[in-house]
C-alpha cells in the first residue's frame, strides 16, 4: 500500500485490522496493530513524504501472527539508538512513535542508512 497522505494511513490501518481480524486476533489486539501502522505510516508521511506499508500474515514455529513492514526511500535516520529513545524527536513531536511501537509489538526491526531510506518491520503473534 502506498503511503502519501493521511488518507492512506487510514486505509492501511483498515487493511491491517481486517487481516488481523481474519487471523482471529481479539479486538484489543486489532487496535494495537492499527496503532503500530499509524505510527509507522505517520513517520513516513512526516519524514520521508512517500513510502509504503505492507501487511501480511506470517507463521513461525507453529505460531501465527501478523507482520507490518513500513519502508521508504526518504532521508533515513542518522542515529538509530537516539531515535529509539523515549521522547527523542527531530520534529518537536512526542518521540513516542518508534519506542512505543516497539513496546506494543512482539518483534521490532529497524533498518536505516542515513540518506538511503528507512525500513521498519514489526510482528505481533497470536496468543
Amino acid at each position: 500500500m502506498p503511503i502519501d497522505c493521511d488518507a492512506d494511513i487510514v486505509s492501511a490501518r483498515q487493511k491491517g485490522r481486517e487481516l488481523a481480524s481474519q487471523c482471529g486476533f481479539p479486538t484489543t489486539d486489532l487496535a494495537v496493530i492499527a496503532t503500530a501502522i499509524s505510527e509507522l505510516a505517520r513517520n513516513i508521511v512526516r519524514y520521508a513524504v512517500h513510502g509504503e506499508v505492507l501487511v501480511r500474515l506470517v507463521e513461525a514455529d507453529g505460531k501465527r501472527g501478523i507482520e507490518v513492514t513500513a519502508s521508504d526511500d526518504g532521508p533515513g535516520i542518522a542515529d538509530i539508538t537516539l531515535a529509539l529513545q523515549d521522547g527523542y524527536s527531530t520534529s518537536g513531536g512526542l518521540g513516542l512513535g518508534l519506542p512505543g511501537t516497539r513496546r506494543l509489538m512482539d518483534e521490532f526491526e529497524l533498518l536505516s542508512d542515513f540518506g538511503k531510506g528507512t525500513k521498519v518491520t514489526v510482528r505481533r503473534w497470536k496468543r
Partner: peptide, 16 residues
C-alpha cells in the same frame, strides 16, 4: 472499541 483506540497512546507510554 473507541475507548481502546483512545487509550493506546497511553498504553505505549504506560509501559514506558
Amino acid at each position: 472499541k473507541f475507548f481502546v483506540e483512545g487509550l493506546l497512546p497511553f498504553e505505549m507510554s504506560h509501559r514506558q
